[in-house]
Structure formats: structure tokens, C-alpha cells
């Protein structure tokens, strides 16, 4: 089942004389339970694409549907509600609230709905057990490591059982060990809970955890790779090759 469908997505920044077309008529489809990676050189429009798909930013033209809801037809109020109930976000710079403890941060997405307290407690326990952060629940973000922050951010994205999770370079600030741990967790959640994930990354290793990788260049989808039955090593090699072709002279910095 197709969960996300984008048609002729165009995004233009700037006004009249000084415009820049960042996304050029992109068509995209994501099926339920997929783990999609988005790669591409810096400035190619990855973050922009993720933002418009996640309804954080508006498209200039084109149609985006998630679970058969047309995002362009929704008003701000309804869109917010939709975002809160159906989508989850993991950001590169964690975006945790400094004044809240880890647990309070994770509870945020549940705080508005009518989830009973006991159910909330259960959900928080489940997800923090899975991500291995249940012993830091009462700490503040300033008291935990970058990897723990990122896992907190992931727990917050996942706790509300979203249909899709959007992640923008979730491993960007992590060392390779923490990065691998987080990615295995995401992979596990993707497989076990059938959560659809879209992840922007610069890192070929990270991308090799995905089931499909899209390559973006100059605002267009340049090519895509399916993992299929390949193991991670083979897939990684394939990604590296494509990237080499894509950037020609040593890819993006």
C-alpha cells in the first residue's frame, strides 16, 4: 500500500528577480513499511524535500498525499493536528527542549491527545526500553550525551505510533558506534513495528541500513537503489558507486 505520494513537487525560494528553484517537479512514492534513504550533495534540496513532505514547509506547486490526505488542501489548524497524530520527526540537532527532562520531552506528543496516563506510561516504557534510555528518564538534556539525546529524540518521534517518521541526518552528530546503534534500532523498529521511515543522510553506511535509497541532484531525483536481497555490505558498495558517479570529482563535503 502506498502511504506517501508526491506529484510534480516544485519548490521555489526567493522573490521575483532573485528566485531559486530548489525542487524541480519531483515525483515520489513510498510504500507502507519502507525505510527510504535520501542522499545527495550539499544544497541539492534534501532537507527541503523532507520538510515539504512532512508538511513543515509548503510546496510552490504539486500535490502531496499521506494516507490519502491531500496536504495542500488542509488548513493550518488541521495540518498541525495531522502532523502531530500521524508524523514523527528526528532532527539533526536533536531539538529537545532544554527545560524538560528526557521523560517530559518524550511525553510531549502524547500530551495533547486523550491518551490515559497509564497508557502513556506504558508507551514511554516500551519505547525507552527498546532504545535503551530508560535509566536517564529524569535527566535534563544538558546532562546526557549526544547519542542519548538523539535516542531521546527518536523515542519522542516514535512514541505516538506515527505512520511515517522523518529523520534529517539523525546520525550527523554521532560517532560511528552510536550511529550504528541508533540505526540498528531504527531498522528494528521499522521491521518489528512496520513504521515507515524516511531518512536524509550523507553517510553511505547509514544509507545501507535502508531498504531503498534515492539520490538527489540539483533538485531532481537522479537515481534510486533497492536493497532487495543484498546484504548490507553489498548494498553499501552499490551506494558508494552511485555516489561516485553522481558527484564525479569526489562527492560532497
Amino acid at each position: 500500500m502506498v502511504i506517501l505520494r508526491g506529484r510534480k513537487i516544485k519548490k521555489v525560494f526567493g522573490k521575483k528577480s532573485n528566485t531559486q528553484e530548489v525542487l524541480k517537479d519531483i515525483d515520489i512514492e513510498v510504500r507502507e513499511g519502507e525505510f527510504v534513504g535520501i542522499m545527495g550533495p550539499s544544497g541539492s534540496g534534501k532537507t527541503t524535500l523532507l520538510n515539504v513532505l512532512a508538511s513543515i514547509d509548503k510546496v510552490t506547486s504539486g500535490i502531496i498525499e499521506i494516507n490519502n490526505n491531500n496536504l495542500q488542501k488542509m488548513k493550518e489548524q488541521k495540518l498541525s493536528k495531522f502532523r502531530r497524530e500521524q508524523l514523527g520527526f528526528i532532527f539533526q540537532d536533536y531539538n529537545l527542549l532544554d527545560t524538560l527532562t528526557v521523560k517530559e520531552n518524550i511525553y510531549l506528543p502524547l500530551s495533547v491527545g486523550k491518551t490515559p496516563k497509564t497508557v502513556s506510561e506504558k508507551k514511554i516504557k516500551e519505547i525507552t526500553d527498546l532504545l535503551g534510555i530508560n535509566d536517564i528518564l529524569n535527566k535534563y538534556p544538558s546532562e546526557i550525551s549526544g547519542g542519548q539525546k538523539q535516542r531521546t529524540s527518536a523515542a519522542r518521534a516514535l512514541v505516538g505510533n506515527p505512520s511515517i517518521v522523518f529523520a534529517d541526518e539523525p546520525t550527523g552528530a554521532l560517532d560511528s558506534k552510536s550511529a550504528t546503534a541508533l540505526l540498528s534500532n531504527l531498522e528494528k523498529i521499522n521491521k518489528e513495528k512496520k513504521v515507515t521511515i524516511m531518512m536524509v543522510t550523507h553517510d553511505s553506511v547509514a544509507a545501507s541500513f535502508c531498504s531503498r535509497v534515492l539520490f538527489l541532484k540539483d533538485g531532481q531525483i537522479y537515481s534510486e537503489l533497492y536493497k532487495g536481497d543484498k546484504d548490507r555490505k553489498q548494498f553499501f558498495q552499490e551506494i558508494m558507486n552511485t555516489q561516485g558517479v553522481l558527484s564525479g570529482d569526489g562527492y560532497d563535503a
Binding site: 513543515i56 493550518e76 489548524q77 498541525s80 493536528k81 495531522f82 502532523r83 502531530r84 497524530e85 508524523l87 520527526f89 532532527f91 531539538n95 529537545l96 527542549l97 510531549l108 506528543p109 495533547v112 519522542r156
Partner: peptide, 11 residues
């Protein structure tokens, strides 16, 4: 952050 997570201005 809260807006991105889907909290409305009114909330």
C-alpha cells in the same frame, strides 16, 4: 520545535 511537532499556534 513544538510547531514542527504539530502543536498549533493556539495550543
Amino acid at each position: 520545535i513544538l510547531r514542527k511537532m504539530g502543536f498549533t499556534t493556539n495550543e
